[in-house]
Design a binder for these strands. Structure first.
Length: 334
DNA sequence: TTGACGTCGCATACCC
DNA sequence: GGGGATGCGA
DNA sequence: GTCAA
């Protein structure tokens, strides 16, 4: 199955293009990569049976990207990618995962300091070579060092079973605050995925300040990434991150829907909205400037002509088609 | 052939 | 110290 | 670079 190998190359091409500030091509390559990853069929098999035209039928894959897939299947390489690797001989496997370090700053680090891997990045940061660079500073240098420590220890995803007890405890504490009118844990934790990247809480409140203060000083918080009036983010001692957002009641359902995801599910929903002449965002479902749904998830799905979809099914793997036909499978409850 | 491709909060560095 | 710009993450 | 208008 070559899908994953090719997807990885496309992600890296997207990163190279972002380094050069090319507009929108990164988006195209990322979309193609994402499609390949989620594809049931093996591209090699598609190509054998249906040839170039078969590849072109895959959504998000046009003339140019199909050619590159063909080239990879025939030769095991993609010239376009090889040239970028030559131009920027960087270990993206290691460096793409460093939080807070994106393509723009990576380019500067490579060009000014010749940094190509994690080890070199760490040495440069420890020797205080990074802070004086244009666009960097003391704070950024320190953040990079912390991000390296984190990347070394974990791969950034956590088992649901490991963090669920901690999240439940935090949830109960927040819920007991008098300023909290409602609270939900969303994201992959609400979808009950086996692995969780980070934890998201949504809150309704008219007085967010005390909630934010409480949140960033919870026991187990080892770092505050940021804290404002509507949004805060922390790292827990177990190594995972938690975010909290405060929202108005009128758009809470839309936010629940949006932040529960998955990303693929949301993209598919937005498309349905557009087909109906509507616009779906984290703020609500709109007909022109008028909000026609937003306070509850149920009304959003209803106005889109479908049954409410349980979070566990929201992966854009057929659940939307089923909900439009009102033929969702029942989830076994216990 | 041409326009859209999400958008926003936060932190940070830069400029005045 | 304030204010618009940029990078990043979501 | 891809899609849809």
């Amino acid at each position: 199955m070559k899908n994953q190998e090719i997807a990885k190359i496309f992600y890296e091409i997207a990163y190279f293009l972002e380094m050069e500030d090319v507009k929108f091509k990164p988006y195209a390559y990322e979309k193609a990569a994402l499609t390949l990853e989620g594809l049931e069929r093996d591209v090699e098999e598609i190509y054998k049976k249906e040839g170039f035209e078969g590849l072109r039928k895959i959504p998000g894959i046009g003339e140019s990207i199909a050619k590159k897939i063909e080239e990879y299947l025939k030769t095991g390489k993609i010239q376009y990618y090889e040239e970028y690797k030559k131009k920027y001989p960087i270990n993206l496997d290691e460096l793409m995962g460093i939080e807070g370090l994106g393509p723009k700053r990576m380019k500067i680090l490579y060009e000014k300091l010749g940094i190509t891997n994690l080890k070199e990045l760490e040495e440069a940061a420890k020797a205080h070579k990074i802070a004086p660079l244009y666009g960097f500073g003391e704070k950024t240098e320190k953040n990079i060092l912390e991000a390296i420590e984190f990347a070394k220890r974990s791969k950034g995803r956590f088992l649901l079973g490991d963090i669920l007890p901690i999240v439940k405890e935090v949830y109960e504490k927040l819920k007991s605050l008098k300023e909290v009118e409602r609270i939900d844990a969303v994201g992959s934790i609400r979808r009950m995925k086996e692995t969780i990247g980070d934890v998201d809480f949504l809150v309704i409140s008219k007085n967010p300040k005390p909630i934010m203060d409480f949140f960033v000083s919870l026991p187990g918080v080892i770092k505050v990434w940021g804290k404002g009036n509507t949004k805060a983010s922390v790292r827990m001692k177990e190594g995972f991150d938690m975010d909290i957002r405060v929202l108005p009641r009128r758009s809470y359902g839309a936010a629940l829907q949006y932040f529960t995801g998955s990303k693929e599910h949301n993209i598919a929903l937005r498309k349905i909205a557009i087909q109906k002449g509507l616009k779906l965002s984290e703020y609500g479902l709109f007909k022109g400037a008028e909000m026609i749904a937003g306070e509850s998830e149920e009304e959003i799905y209803e106005k889109l002509g479908m049954d409410w979809i349980p979070p566990e099914l929201r992966e854009d793997r057929g659940e939307i088609e089923a909900a439009l036909k009102h033929k969702l499978p029942k989830i076994i409850d216990y």
